[in-house]
Amino acid sequence: MLFNKKGSLIGAILAVTIGILVIHVNFVIFQGLFDAIVRDLTDYRFGNVYVTDEEDFIDKSDLSLVGWFERIPYVDAAAPRLSSSASINSTKTGEKIEEFRVPVVGVDPLRDIRVSTIHETVDDGQYVFSRNSIVLGSDVARDLGGLKVGDNIKIKIVNRIDEDSLKRFIVTGISKSPGGQGLDTSVLIHIDTLRDMMGRPGETGSIMVKLNDSTKSEEVRDLFIRSFPNDDFKAETLEEVAEESLRGFRSGIAMINMIGLFGMFSSAFAVVTIQMMLVSSKTREIGVMRSIGAKRKDILVIFLIQGMLIGALGASVGTAVGLGYTYYAKETKMQWEGSIPLEVNYNWPNIIQTAIMSFSLAVTAAIYPAYRATKLLPVEAMRSV
């Protein structure tokens, strides 16, 4: 008898559903973006463990360090890298174009493709494969007059004794990554070529380590530090090496989640309003029930059950729609034009917690209207209609 206001009940269920959906959408977009940034930092720049020298360049053999890491069961591969900056000039249609302080990354072509996915961003040409080949980031290629594969460029690097080191390269590839998270503003050359130009034979700037289980990164880091106590090595997990940028993004996610929670509380307020409307519209029925012997607790139970029904249906529908949206985003690797493809995962603890919270809020929101219904006296209830 108290459940025939279908429009009001559907409205209350939709309010709960929308509250849950807002949280799911926020999580997919913002957490997915955060995870995508972590993914690209891991795959392009740092790996799961990043080793440098606290004072200068690593002078220990990169082959021995890579071999040490690859003996650990958790390690898939390791690779050395070396970085510098250079002046680059090219000639297009008879005009000389020069760019300064361009980041240069030296890579070991055979090992780097096992640790990093930066080679997969080369969509024109191929990755570094010889001592005189160079891969240009898409921004560098554009700034140098729209260079293409097969063009020649000249690079100038100041070596360790402050002398200019010049070398000509053939462009063998152009690298472009979604959202510019790769090395779009850099150039890549063979690490041995960069060592020669910098006057640092046998030295390395960093070691990237890729794990088959990212949860073991701290364990591998600590094991490495303990194994080389007399060296000045600095080993960091991705969370440590990119701490500042990731911390700022986490703060943004926390704020967005807070907005989502306010949306859920707004849904609870809508449930209270609708329940109060139902109580008002059912004044006569409540009076009839009280006059035939229904107790206050019976009225209370009816409206609480109604709140539980709204909460259960709203949580179920909202969670189902949210999971459908998450599935779509995950399968399509959702991205906007030129943006980073989102890294979407099912966070089951978060999903379950959201459903339980929405159900609890809906039930809690039904308590006051139910209490108001129990306070109606039979005579007054019958007289009010």
Score class of each variant (00 low, 15 high):
V271L: 13
I161N: 03
F46W: 05
K210Y: 12
D56C: 03
G67Q: 04
G252P: 02
V171Y: 06
F57Q: 08
A86C: 10
K176W: 08
E343D: 09
K295G: 12
V135R: 00
T332K: 05
G293C: 09
D35T: 04
S85W: 12
T204L: 05
D164S: 07
S186K: 05
R111L: 14
Y44N: 03
K330S: 12
T204K: 01
T364N: 01
H119A: 15
K96N: 09
V187T: 07
T354E: 12
M334T: 12
I174Y: 06
R200A: 09
D62N: 11
A36I: 10
E95L: 01
I13V: 15
A12N: 11
S291Y: 04
S175G: 10
T91C: 00
F233D: 02
A329V: 02
L261Y: 10
N132Y: 10
T17C: 14
M1A: 15
N347I: 09
F46A: 15
T52L: 09
L65N: 06
D62K: 14
T52N: 00
G150W: 03
K234W: 02
F359Y: 13
I207H: 02
G94L: 05
A77M: 01
L309D: 10
M208Y: 14
I305T: 14
G205T: 05
K216G: 01
A270G: 11
V344T: 08
G150E: 10
W336K: 10
S384A: 09
K176Y: 11
L223P: 01
L377N: 03
T374H: 01
I253S: 01
Q335D: 06
V171T: 05
L376G: 02
Y74W: 14
V49T: 04
D112F: 05
L194A: 07
T42C: 03
F34Q: 09
R195W: 10
T354P: 06
G11W: 11
R200N: 06
A373F: 01
A79P: 06
F27L: 07
I170T: 15
G67L: 04
M255V: 13
Q353S: 14
D184A: 07
A294M: 11
I134M: 03
